[in-house]
Computed example of a mutant assay.
Amino acid sequence: MTTFLGLPGRTAPAARCDCRRCPWYSGDDADPAVVIAPVCSGCNSDCSYCGCANAACTSCPIRCGSRIDIEAWMVDIGDTVEFDDVTITGSLPPHLPTFIPQVDGSGVAELDAALSWPAYAVGLRRLFSPRTHTIFPRWADGGTAAEILRLPSTTLTVLSGYGEDPLVEAFWTARHRDRLIERIADLRFDLVLAPNYSIYGNWPRAEHLINMRRSLLLAADFADAGVPTVPNLYWFRLEDLRRYARWIADSPPPAIAINLQTVRENNHWESWALPGLYWLAENIPPQLPVIATGLSRPNRVATLVELFGPRLVLISQNPAQYALHGAVMTAEGRQDLHARVPDAFATSVRYMASLLPQPVLGGA
């Protein structure tokens, strides 16, 4: 077993991705004296970091067994990469629509005046500064999310906790130091999609395992603070999906979220997203809601509707982005009409909603 800090039972990934000394390796040649949680079938053959011998690695964004501070990272995630100890309780808010437009947080009342939509989402970077790594004053000066956005109290507000890697990494670092979870809970969002941590194909397997656990841990932190929260699922291998399915069966969350904002190219969609989505559709409970972000192409939306039916919720920034240029989304594609922003926004939101089943989700 790989130990550190002189404390037995604490584990860390093996340096230089040496599977024979890794406590999570599940291969046939695994050493039973080392393995304590066989959750990984071995190294990532596409990894660009395996064998790295750079000793000055505390500034490296990659977590692997060769890092000189890997001990601190393992302590931070609870000394394990398993999911069994993570529980995310709660329920979805009542009357959640199947399409939720994501806005930038400015002029939302004006947008809603032409629409009266039941829910809006805002992204993490509209609330948590990518420059100062603190909550923006607008959100820190008191009031609920609905009040700050100048929406009716009956309108649902959703925090879409996704962002670029530097932003979500900064959020992880500051989450306890600055009481971020508690301060966001005070905003009384009706739903939070927990931040997710990336899994890239050229990263070491240890980074994948650590990031999958971090995504679930953050969701659990929000849920423990009393915020209705949905965890994001990222995966790299079939074994990852199987682990999620076992975890969901044992400790069902209120829903699962899948961030597809970075899946733009068809080869990535077809090689990673689609196989995983098909597998999930077959292997998670049939009534478990699925919240997807980042889709706008009608053919891809239709695929998700086919897979998940009326339990699907879609969140998209496209109506707001198109509206800024007076453009609308239609079945024929983008149309530049030079329309008023609120009118263009309303047209695109209604179009996106028309692609989805109409029942609302959530409690009674």
Rank of each mutant, 00 (worst) to 15 (best):
Q358V: 01
Q317E: 14
P342Q: 09
R243V: 00
Y351D: 06
G142P: 00
R205C: 06
V349T: 06
L193T: 00
I181H: 08
R242P: 02
Y120N: 03
G9N: 10
D240T: 08
A249H: 02
L216A: 14
G326I: 02
N299E: 15
G142N: 02
G9E: 11
R297D: 15
I88M: 07
L92W: 07
A327P: 02
R138S: 07
A114E: 15
L274M: 06
D240I: 00
L233Q: 07
F345E: 14
V103S: 06
I256N: 09
F308N: 10
F99R: 09
V108A: 08
A12S: 10
H176V: 00
A346I: 08
A320E: 10
D186G: 05
R150A: 01
R131H: 11
F4E: 03
G163Q: 05
R300A: 14
G78K: 09
R311N: 06
A140Q: 14
L280Y: 02
P298W: 09
A206C: 14
V122F: 05
Y234Q: 07
Q261F: 01
V192Y: 05
G333N: 09
Y25A: 04
T155N: 05
E82P: 00
D240W: 06
N266V: 13
P101E: 03
L277F: 04
G309P: 09
L312G: 12
F99N: 09
V301C: 11
T80Y: 03
A206E: 15
I210C: 10
S91Y: 01
E71T: 07
P118G: 07
P130M: 13
T262K: 06
R188Y: 05
P298S: 14
W139G: 03
V35Y: 07
N318A: 14
C57M: 06
L111Y: 08
G309Y: 07
R21S: 15
A56H: 13
E207K: 08
L111C: 01
D31C: 12
Y25Q: 03
R150F: 01
T87P: 00
G163E: 14
L124S: 12
D165G: 02
P319A: 15
R150M: 00
S198C: 11
V86M: 01
P8H: 03
T98P: 07
A140F: 04
D18Y: 01
P166M: 09
